[in-house]
Design a protein around this nucleic acid. Structure first.
Length: 380
RNA sequence: GGAGAGGUAGCGAAGUGGCUAAACGCGGCUGACUGUAACUCAGUUCCCAUCGGGUUCGGCAGUUCGAAUCUGCCCCUCUCCA
């Protein structure tokens, strides 16, 4: 049967075993490892599709739960799918609503059949089952879609996690069976299991046997230490088929991305760069810069002298500070462009280093440059 | 010159006898943010200090057990009329 996507591994770093690849999708080819901007409700907040393209983004995300509530999947289907609806002519991925099981945990109840939510918009009762999530995602039409999972909290007891993982595996099976458009949309399984190695192994092995076109690693970045996150990745990747793409969900700090790439993760997404941009924090070659600070009032230099983004080519810190303080949308937009470009550029540099068989050196240089280490969790 | 209003922390502005080192907003400083209920949230912002202490509400002098709050005088600002 024709698969929606095809993953081609193009190089394996002789120094570290890290890999580069090309993900062929119905909306174009993208190189991996890559960082994917998040556009929850069919928009990467404040950015136009042209701007998203210009920063070098390959895939962008959207979200099942949010698009379901507003504008509604039928509205998007009527427009011809997410890409046409939002005028983004590139690959897209939709999350299943599994993260909302975590983030909206105080207004939902998990049952075997699915998840009952109380709408965060108007309080109305909602029911999201694996089948419903897939049905919505079929209508949204992204190139890659996700199984409905429970992104479990951290810490969680072994018994809680075992119960959760087993249910998520049953849901994965139901998602696969419900999927109507496998030739157009690749359905990824999501490895869960928290910090427990045997549960991660159970999850990864079971999903691998089900033969998905790609695999996500979920349940990370939920409050655990970096060291714990890296173990979760190790426990998961170990049991996944080498030739399929791996996607570490919700991870977007520089150190974690670099560690993930070392562990053969191919795809990353995170709201961090866009959220902190809106809050005035910038990821730069000089470390984090808080544009609110008075010391930038008269600073006519670019945000990051090493950056090639639209913002850094055209605007001063003084102006960016003004925009942010004045609560002008252009400030959020320019800082979001920069932060996304920063992470996408890191991924580009990582790919280059892998192809030149020096990823280990590259990672060490980056950790040194940003004063990071593999154990501690502050991160960047 | 006459009539009126007012002077509170970096700024604006509450408070009008004890619960007030003084609400609130802005500004300042810290910090957080990871498959987005987040252009958000938390802390801090007179001085010194670990408890705690020391100076404040235009100035000076009073009343009172106690004053930013009441009284007198003085200084300054604004509005209107000459």
């Amino acid at each position: 049967m024709k698969e929606a996507i095809h993953f081609e591994i193009t190089h394996v770093c002789k120094q570290t075993g890290a890999r580069t690849g090309i993900l062929h999708t119905p909306h174009g080819d993208v190189e991996t490892p890559m960082f994917m901007p998040v556009g929850t409700q069919a928009t990467v907040k404040f950015l136009s599709p042209e701007e998203i393209k210009e920063i070098g983004a390959g895939v962008i995300l959207s979200n099942t739960y949010h698009c379901w509530l507003r504008p509604g999947e039928d509205v998007i289907a009527h427009a011809g799918g997410l890409q046409k609806f939002m005028n983004y002519n590139g690959p897209m991925l939709t999350d299943s609503g599994g993260f909302q099981v975590f983030s909206l945990s105080d207004q939902r109840k998990i049952l075997e059949e699915g998840v009952h939510f109380k709408s965060h918009l108007d309080g109305s009762p909602l029911f999201l089952s694996p089948e419903k999530s897939i049905e919505i995602q079929n209508k949204l039409g992204a190139d890659i879609i996700m199984c409905l999972d429970e992104c479990a909290p951290y810490p969680a007891t072994y018994d809680y996690m075992k119960n959760s993982v087993e249910r998520t595996l049953r849901w994965a099976k139901r998602c696969k069976e419900a999927h109507q458009r496998p030739a157009d949309q690749a359905l990824f399984g999501i490895v869960q299991g928290g910090e427990y190695e045997d549960l991660r192994a159970l999850s990864a092995k079971t999903l691998a046997e089900m033969d998905f076109p790609g695999y996500s690693i979920g349940g990370t970045s939920v409050g655990e230490s970096k060291e714990c996150m890296y173990r979760m990745i190790d426990y998961s990747v170990k049991y996944l088929p080498w030739e399929k793409p791996r996607y570490l969900m919700g991870v977007g700090s520089v150190d974690a991305i670099l560690e993930g790439i070392l562990r053969n993760v191919d795809m990353f997404d995170c709201v961090l760069p866009t959220r902190i941009a809106r809050h005035g924090t910038c990821m730069t070659s000089q470390g984090r810069v808080n544009i609110k600070k008075k010391e930038y009032e008269m600073d006519l230099s670019p945000l990051d002298p090493e950056c090639d983004c639209y913002t850094c080519r055209n605007y001063t810190k003084s102006y960016l500070r003004h925009l942010h303080r004045a609560n002008e949308g252009l400030g959020s937009r320019l800082l979001s462009i920069h932060n996304l470009r920063f992470l996408i550029h890191i991924a580009e540099e990582a790919r280059k280093a892998i192809k030149e068989d020096r990823y280990g050196d590259f990672k060490d240089e980056m950790f040194k440059k940003y004063n990071l280490n593999s154990i501690d969790s502050r991160g960047f």
